[in-house]
Design a protein around this nucleic acid. Structure first.
Lengths: 191, 191
DNA sequence: TATCTAATTAGGTAGTTGTCTAATTAGATA
DNA sequence: TATCTAATTAGACAACTACCTAATTAGATA
């Protein structure tokens, strides 16, 4: 799916008349005259719009004698709709998969009482656990070193190592022994 | 979410320059001058486009000193993208739920060897089972009554009752004792 | 206060698009 | 073949829009 076709898809949906046509077709196929009648428009106008809708691929037609019936291809309609955010970002499905895997790692390394068994040595898993640990910290709040130490000790006695990992992996930054969460964009990522 | 806003959303995405802006922002926030530079456009043109993007709600801004940074709201971006097909049709999630329920009914009334225990008396469940039964019939093919009877007997000996249910619920129609599947639009539905 | 930078507003131009009427085409039927 | 219906094409007009330059505003800083 090249970008150009996607722009065209959205341009086509960006017109109230064409949306009204789609609403009609969503309840079942119709022919041109019927659409024109229901919308109070002339036949050539319908031809004009159907050409655009057909060009996107979400509408197709079948001829029966002299009459042409228009249908929506719902599958395509849905997949084209989601295509743009999926191109710019990771598809939702992958995200859910990632979330599931992360949950599995957390289950492996975090005890039932919430404490940490030990830091994973595998980088990917370590990042997942570090993310889990900082969940309880507040965005924009400044923490003195002592407070950070106390916080980490709720999970594991070796607060020095974990505090260092927070800094190395850009989850937090330190200035004059005051700690603060970094914006999420800066955090280390898995891929 | 009113229709008008959705039309506007798609109209906004229906422009190549704005898509390029979104691609840039998807990798991280940027300010106006940076966007203008990367795209080879002048500042007022960027203002023009950012106004439209902001109006849809998928882009917001934060000021830092004199510079305005633009951000995409990915959640909104995704949900607006799916909104139109979800308005015209049943949301995908509901469909999956329905499919699961239907599967449960089939499991209850169909034996391991594929035969039918008995027709459910509850209308909803009956429709589900009838749909399941006609799965093996071919669209557009004409069946003599004898062939239909044989087909149904593979599921249940009482072919006469089930054959009648096919007709009553518009899954098939009969002409001169020749049976044929109706188009799917005509089938009885649950809701 | 004067100055600098980033953003916005105003106004203009070229190109696009939604709609129409009138004329034409495509296909079925008497 | 003549005729009917549905759809399309051609061509026109008004509305809209993407982009520009020039001028202005908003906010920070020397």
């Amino acid at each position: 799916m090249q970008l150009n076709r996607l722009v065209n898809f959205h341009k086509t949906l960006g017109d109230p008349t064409r949306i009204r046509i789609l609403s009609l077709l969503a309840t079942g196929p119709l022919h041109g005259q019927a659409i024109a009648g229901k919308l109070g428009l002339k036949a050539p106008t319908i031809t004009h719009h159907m050409t655009k809708l057909r060009d996107t691929g979400i509408v197709y037609q079948r001829r029966d004698k002299n009459t042409i019936y228009y249908y929506i291809d719902e599958k395509k309609f849905r997949s084209y709709s989601e295509a743009l955010p999926n191109m710019l970002y990771q598809p939702e499905q992958d995200k859910e998969d990632d979330a599931l895997k992360a949950q599995a790692v957390v289950n492996n390394f975090i005890e039932a009482d919430g404490t940490l068994k030990h830091l994973p040595s595998q980088r990917k898993k370590k990042i997942i656990i570090l993310k889990h640990l900082i969940n309880g910290l507040e965005r924009g709040k400044k923490y003195p070193e002592k407070e950070i130490n106390e916080y980490i000790k709720r999970f594991h006695p070796d607060f020095a190592t974990i505090r260092r990992e927070f800094i190395i992996n850009h989850f937090m930054y330190r200035e004059n022994n005051i700690y603060e969460l970094n914006p999420e964009e800066m955090w280390a990522t898995i891929d």
